[in-house]
Every structure is written in C-alpha cells, then in structure tokens.
C-alpha cells in the first residue's frame, strides 16, 4: 500500500467514524436521559435518509427544503416513539426494553423495505464532487461528514449548556424525581430528547447517503455505532465519539489487509476490547448504590 493510499484510507476512516459518531451521539443522549439503549437508532437514521429522499427527489422539493422537512419529520417520529411506546415501559427490566427496541428496529426495516423497496436508491446532494490534493483523492461528501459532525456537536453542546431546555434536560437526566419536584416536565423533556436523538440520526442519514446510497442495509451503521460507543465507553459523549473514530479508522485498514472477515471488524474490535476491559476503554461505574 502506498503512502497516499494510506492517507486516503485514513481520511475515509475518519469520515466513516464521524458518521458512526453522529449516530452514537443520538443514542448516548437517549441513554443518559432514560437509561434506554436504543438498538433502533440505525433504523432511525435509515428512515431519516428515506424521508429526505422522498421529500427532495420524489416530491421534488429540492435538497435543502427536503432535508429540513426530513429532519423535522424524524423529530416528530422520535417524539411520538417515546410518547406512545417507550413511556409505557418505564420501570420494566432493562433487558425487556432492549428487546423491544430491537423489535422496533425489525419493524422499521421491514416497513421501509415495503414502502421504498429493497434496492438501493441514490440521493443527489450538492456536495458530491471530488477534491484532489497531493495525489490523494477524497470526495467532498466525505469531508462534509466530518464538518457536519463537528457542527452538530458544537450545536448540541451549546444547546445543552446554554439554553433553559437544555439545562432542564441535563437535570432530568441526572435525577428524574428531583427534576420532577422542581417543576421540570420530565416526561415531555424525555420525549424531546428522543426527538433530538432522532433528528441527529436523520442528519447522519443525509450525510451518509451519498457514500452508501439509501437502502435498508444502511441501518447496520446503527449497530456499528453501538459497537463504537461501547469501545469508548457509553456514559459520555466524548468517549462514544472517540470509540466511533477508532472503529471507523480501523475498519478500512483491516478490511484491506485481512479481507476474510470484511465488514465485521467493528464487532471484532468491540469484542476484543470488552474481553480485555469489560467496561470499555473509558470506564465508568455502573454499580448500584446500596
């Protein structure tokens, strides 16, 4: 492998990792607020991409308007998902709730396949040209993923540390009962967290669409992002982002050198990390207070 190839793989890896990170940000938020691990987050991203595709291409509203509507529709979907389904399960065993999210994932994938078909569709985006510098060719769409991740992270950071709602959500995530007693509408805020998580997933869907095409198989990124978040440590956003970057960068190289297990290296890395450090690279306490 030549040096420029290596650089190219590295850049692809970083952008891929950022894509995972965008998804991970969404479910880590949801996890921190509700202790629910949303196995269906990859499906939310897929749904987001399909909605944008519908609005911008099928309805012909153009990319930007279509994206805005797509993201918004996912926000509504996320809100309803919590209000109608997840809220009923408060207090049930965690195990049951994971299984439920997996079941929701199955349904979303099947529904998407039935509505939009099982063959990949392409979404044309305004940033699809290639950039060349020093013998390295990289798609603008790849760069946009990295830029998008940084922008979204900053926006979310600002939202959670500066706005009233953001602070209220932080309070509710720390202690639901105490937040409730301080007149914070915990239920509604948690639904808002779901909405934000789903909207971030939709952005991830738009960003990833040009490099992967839009199809039901996209949802696999959700599981890889979960793997990344586990590698880095689920409890914190920076940890999850770091883990996703590690996975994203390692994947293309391992696929290149050892193609036998192509496509599964994200899981192999995660299993290896968990075997050595059962709590992930950045450990956190899960121990219950007695």
């Amino acid at each position: 492998m030549e040096f420029s190839d290596a650089i190219q793989l590295l850049l692809i890896g970083i952008s891929q990792g950022c894509g995972y990170a965008l998804i991970a940000i969404g479910f880590v938020f949801i996890y921190r607020a509700t202790e629910i691990v949303n196995f269906a987050h990859g499906e939310l991203m897929m749904l987001g991409a399909f909605m944008v595709l519908t609005f911008s291409e099928i309805w012909g509203l153009g990319f930007w308007l279509g994206s805005a509507l797509g993201i918004l529709s996912l926000g509504v979907f996320g809100y309803l998902l919590d209000a109608v389904v997840m809220r009923r399960l408060v207090g049930q065993a965690q195990a049951t709730i994971f299984i439920l999210t997996v079941a929701i994932a199955m349904m979303l994938r099947a529904l998407a396949g039935m509505i939009w078909g099982w063959t990949p569709l392409s979404l044309s985006v305004p940033f699809s040209s290639d950039i060349t510098f020093g013998g390295v060719v990289i798609g603008l769409d790849r760069i946009m993923i990295i830029v998008g991740t940084v922008v979204i992270s900053l926006l979310l950071y600002a939202f959670f540390s500066l706005t009233r709602t953001g602070l209220a959500i932080q309070a509710a995530s720390q202690n639901q009962l105490a937040a409730y007693y301080s007149r914070i509408p915990v239920k509604r805020l948690i639904a808002v967290v779901w909405a934000i998580g789903a909207m971030v997933a939709a952005v991830a869907g738009i960003m990833m669409a040009p490099v992967t095409q839009v199809d039901t198989g996209m949802s696999i990124f959700g599981i890889k992002a979960l793997a990344g978040a586990v590698v880095g440590g689920f409890g914190s956003i920076p940890g999850a982002v770091l883990g996703c970057l590690i996975i994203g960068v390692a994947e293309p190289f391992l696929d290149f050198y050892f193609p036998a297990f192509k496509g599964t290296y994200a899981y192999i890395i995660m299993l290896a990390v968990l075997f050595i450090r059962p709590e992930g690279l950045i450990s956190q306490t899960f121990q219950k207070k007695v």
Binding site: I99, L100, M106, M107, A110, L111, G113, M114
Partner: peptide
C-alpha cells in the same frame, strides 16, 4: 411484499412486551 414476515415478527414481540 418482501419483509412482511419481519414486520410481523417485530410487531408480535413489541405487542407482547407492551
């Protein structure tokens, strides 16, 4: 439609859990 079985699987699991 392909995927009907998956859809029903998912629906059955979620229905029972809920």
């Amino acid at each position: 439609a392909a995927g009907l079985e998956q859809l029903l699987f998912g629906a059955i699991i979620s229905g029972f859990i809920m």
